[in-house]
Design a protein around this nucleic acid. Sequence first.
DNA 1: AGAGTACTGTGAAAAAAATAACAATACAAC
DNA 2: GTTGTATTGTTATTTTTTTCACAGTACTCT
Lengths: 208, 208
Amino acid sequence: MISDRTVERLSLYRWLLEMRVDPGTVYLFSHQLASMASVSPAQLRRDLMAIGYSGSPSKGYLVKDLAGSIGAVLDGSEPSRVALVGMGNLGRAIVSFVRGRKSQLQIVATFDKDCRKTGRVISGCRCYNQDKIEEVVEKEKIITAVITVPCAEAQKVADRLVNAGVRGILNYAPVPLRVPEWVYLENRDVTAALEKVAYFARQEEERK
Amino acid sequence: MISDRTVERLSLYRWLLEMRVDPGTVYLFSHQLASMASVSPAQLRRDLMAIGYSGSPSKGYLVKDLAGSIGAVLDGSEPSRVALVGMGNLGRAIVSFVRGRKSQLQIVATFDKDCRKTGRVISGCRCYNQDKIEEVVEKEKIITAVITVPCAEAQKVADRLVNAGVRGILNYAPVPLRVPEWVYLENRDVTAALEKVAYFARQEEERK
DNA sequence: AGAGTACTGTGAAAAAAATAACAATACAAC
DNA sequence: GTTGTATTGTTATTTTTTTCACAGTACTCT
Ligand SMILES: NC(=O)c1ccc[n+]([C@@H]2O[C@H](COP(=O)([O-])OP(=O)(O)OC[C@H]3O[C@@H](n4cnc5c(N)ncnc54)[C@H](O)[C@@H]3O)[C@@H](O)[C@H]2O)c1
Ligand SMILES: NC(=O)c1ccc[n+]([C@@H]2O[C@H](COP(=O)([O-])OP(=O)(O)OC[C@H]3O[C@@H](n4cnc5c(N)ncnc54)[C@H](O)[C@@H]3O)[C@@H](O)[C@H]2O)c1
């Protein structure tokens, strides 16, 4: 089993390989890619070890090949099908962002409870009424979801998603959700992140 | 020096204490707060040790007092003044969210390069033209910033912010920024987060 | 072809983080 | 008062993550 941290870095490596490496560059050394990703060369090599990828001691890593190998691990056999619940400001921003990005991820369904949003296609994606969550998630075999509803609704939505078969949730509501241990949960609380950054900024300022 | 992880959890504890604890509750045991935060009681106690807070062995922690003590560490003496650059979909969502939230954080200035946005007050916050970054950041003594501009602009914006005196950056552009080691940087790449969640969701699905 | 070079892959070591364990303590019940 | 109980603060242990270090290797240069 590959660790949390490693998976996140692998995703970054792939993006760098696909988007930030000059197309003419065929090979890359660990220290070059590591430097782009702001990690140590040893860290990079160990991460690649986790996916069983080997480069050449004299040439380094074959750019396209490595990107492909990371993809094989991260994406599995077919593209991941994702649902997003809560088409407010944040939800719409995420949907349009993910769609515009070269990626194996597909947001195949979105949900809202506001009738002005449902039934329409927003940011290129069908928006269903939230009472269709179970039906659509099951039919579309969705196992990954993003939650961008207000705080008060988040737990209810999470419960329904889990019940419908979702196994991974990316939660943007600033409330720590409760899910069964067999559901992978990632919380992205802006407040906590900002407070953390503000705290360390102050530390740096004082240390001057 | 308090660790990264601990600071983030402290922020969560405070929020729970202020928003999720019944106002009538005066004392709380470590296992109760730990359970709300989905961490182990030992973890919670260790985190509180980091800020030198002590409870009573028989009564637990004094809710208001603990929240205040965490605040004293996280917020310092006065509220943190924050700038946000890039008033697009995401930027506006974050500004309105942070303003609506009880918090010591103040977004005191926003910037954009689009003239339709600058000069106006958006989501309750003055939006300046981006060429005013240095001037405003210095004058307002801002040391914390959020970046929500497109990928291609992020590094340029970061450089200017750092130059103007910023010491902590929360970056939402999906590109790993380069900053001096004395600037605290937190990257919040949606793609990496989603790919990670999708990966572990698949693992759980297969493990069934 | 042989020496030299600069890299990789990985075991070993170190550092960091989380968990467990437990003595010390404050209260409750009797 | 004494006994019992449940919790804290903190030390010790375990686990996880990162870094170090170096043998092994494929290439270059002479
Ligand atoms: N804007 C940010 O960057 C940001 C940051 C952190 C957290 N958040 C959180 O993300 C969430 C959304 O933020 P926003 O700014 O987009 O708010 P928003 O009010 O614009 O959007 C919320 C959307 O969810 C829909 N909704 C409400 N209940 C629902 C339900 N039960 N099922 C389906 N849809 C439902 C609403 O109709 C609305 O469209 C909030 O919890 C907010 O705290 C936002
Ligand atoms: N929407 C999301 O949740 C999400 C997720 C991940 C990443 N992002 C990233 O966040 C960024 C913003 O996303 P968005 O959806 O809000 O895009 P957007 O295009 O709506 O907003 C970008 C804003 O930045 C402004 N801008 C551009 N260059 C600037 C400069 N040099 N100085 C100041 N302002 C400038 C633009 O005028 C625009 O208002 C992008 O990098 C995107 O990839 C967004």
